[in-house]
Design a protein around this nucleic acid. Sequence first.
DNA 1: TCTAACTTAATTAAATAAATTAATTAAGTT
DNA 2: AACTTAATTAATTTATTTAATTAAGTTAGA
Lengths: 408, 408
Amino acid sequence: MTQIQVGSFQWMKSMNKSTILNVIRLHGPISRAEIAKITRLTAPTVTNIVGELLESGLVVESNLGESTGGRKPIMLRINSSAFYIIGVYAGAKKINAVIATLDGHVVYYTETKVPAGVDVEGYVGLLKKSIHSAIEGTKNPVQSFVGIGIGMHGLVDPEKGISIFAPNLNLANIPVKTELEKEFMLPVEIENDVRAIALGESWFGQGQGIANFICVNVGTGVGAGIILDHHLYHGASYTAGEIGHTTIDIHGPKCSCGNYGCLETLTSGPAIVKRIQKAIRIGKQTVVEEYVKGDLDAITGEMVANAAAQGDTVAIEVLADTGRYLGIGIANLINTFNPSRIILSGGVSRAGDFVLQPLKETVEHRSLAVPAKSVTIVKSELGPHAIAVGAVTLVLHKLFTPQGVTEV
Amino acid sequence: MTQIQVGSFQWMKSMNKSTILNVIRLHGPISRAEIAKITRLTAPTVTNIVGELLESGLVVESNLGESTGGRKPIMLRINSSAFYIIGVYAGAKKINAVIATLDGHVVYYTETKVPAGVDVEGYVGLLKKSIHSAIEGTKNPVQSFVGIGIGMHGLVDPEKGISIFAPNLNLANIPVKTELEKEFMLPVEIENDVRAIALGESWFGQGQGIANFICVNVGTGVGAGIILDHHLYHGASYTAGEIGHTTIDIHGPKCSCGNYGCLETLTSGPAIVKRIQKAIRIGKQTVVEEYVKGDLDAITGEMVANAAAQGDTVAIEVLADTGRYLGIGIANLINTFNPSRIILSGGVSRAGDFVLQPLKETVEHRSLAVPAKSVTIVKSELGPHAIAVGAVTLVLHKLFTPQGVTEV
DNA sequence: TCTAACTTAATTAAATAAATTAATTAAGTT
DNA sequence: AACTTAATTAATTTATTTAATTAAGTTAGA
């Protein structure tokens, strides 16, 4: 254990400042006296630090609270609408930039298509363009923006602030942080998209107040964002959560990675499409075939979900199989991590109970009694801007979380 | 994120004290000036705190170091042999108590058999008895003992200090901490055995200085102790790391837990025995059969390892299969956790390269390129007292690690 | 109904704790 | 003799804490 943390005066002050800011965010509107109780700091200390927060504009005094036998408390709250954060989903096909308040409320957003075959400079240019248009769209003064968060597809190094490799763009070493900080003169945080979602869930979604949870994202691929003991977990080289290529069936179908029976080959969007194509080929009747007028290559996962919603038994069975396989993968996560929540996001979470019900049944069978008892499985409710809002929380995290002086 | 940390004066002092103590432990013998450099604390602060540490007796001045152009530095080191820690392996069949110095060196140990059918009081009595006999064996004064650590089989709540459930003893709610603290007037820390090993590895074994590693213990069962970002991970209800019942082959053999294809049914000691029994029954020739003179029920995993060491091809093949299956389980861990090290402990680690070699080959095939590149797989070298030494580190961890004022 | 006594909230002033800066002593090397 | 490095001492600074005070209520009894 080579982690070294030391305390200095400035550090103590800034830590208590972050802590109080965070308490106001979580419990506000709240009085100074109440903050003192929660943090166990003394009243004058709270008064002092709150004074600085008021001066910065981040916190404001609102109405007076109810008296419980004495002077009415002055309630404090985060001045959410005075500052804005820019959150960006940097994907391979599109870039979304949202403008959000400090409480995660999206007030404006833009969407930019990414042309095929774009190079590093071109992609960085698109990022700049979409952020500029989002900033201009809100018509807010430049000084009201406190930072930019990026949730990016692929392998990301959040410390260096670069995209190490973006497979679907086939680009490597994109210097996102330095380029954007130079352009906008604002602090920039970058993180992998699935991990950004997980952080978003912990701030504004189904992970609020939960110490240990895993956000399982099922779309084209299958990945997980992992929050443990309230901290986002990255792994040794920023690839933690690549559960799509864990084996659950040694003798299963071949995967693009070269192995057999990976979770992804059984549960991803493409896997669902493959299964219904196979069903059609062996002569089963499904409305999905009508949707595409016989062109099986045009089938999408969404179509299967729609067919199931219409009562199509073949589609329902395909989704149920998906749920059962995903259930095994998630039971493995539950046994391994003993999380208190699993949050499902991505396409499969939108397929509703056709996947979720068999998934939950499988999990009950396949996971051990104790961890099964302490876990709940829910769907994400962050909506279409989940990644961009997650990116917003990257900046919020920097702002609200005390930064330990951690050296080696 | 509801974690709250606040800094006060006392806390700052005690934190810097722990930090300096830890730096001396890790880098000692070391001078005050060097400590100041590493911790970025100023020289007078270091002098002050070191003064207190000297007064407590925990640290001593040793020889003078080499001059590099000025006054010779006074080297400081942990006074390892002046204090002792009691580490206990609390198993279902035996209890081991070791006496260790602050640097993890075992100076004395005892072993106590646990009779079948013992009740809670009886088991606590055995714990007390073995600790007493270990203390008396060393003939050290009582005040030289700083604490007791327990690495216990089964489900443990380290916060409450109880064994929630010990399956192999069929006992529940054993109040280990309170009972032993009352008896010995020393702080008692309790932890699950596999997690204790992991902590032991991070202090004195193959996990030293490594932020993210997983200790995979394969014996009667298969479990993992997980260290992430330098912290031991417990999970929501203290069952994290139960990888023995993760599915790697949906259509695999039935497991005691009711499912099919659990890692444990394919890689545990009993699984190895079952596989060689089957080989014998279908007529394969192996020296293992001679070991037990035809009594197949008497076969142990150790015998298979010995046979392999003698060149027995059937035993070698059985162990190779074990390695391949375990390799899949470990590849899953690597993809999921992206650790920088996997440490193998327990019986299988003693079977040597007969398991390790095919395991490594499988891992190379089954894990993704990036996480595979940043991981090393090694065998534990802690020896027979791994759990007891791990238990010792529970106390060391309390002593050396700064304790954050963490409230909800 | 009015007021004294009590409560709770927030601030102010003085004291305290621990780190920092600057200066000094100690003991070397070149 | 001049320069280095190590460690300590003295004075200063910073941020919290304790104690006292001000502010603004509620409650209960005359």
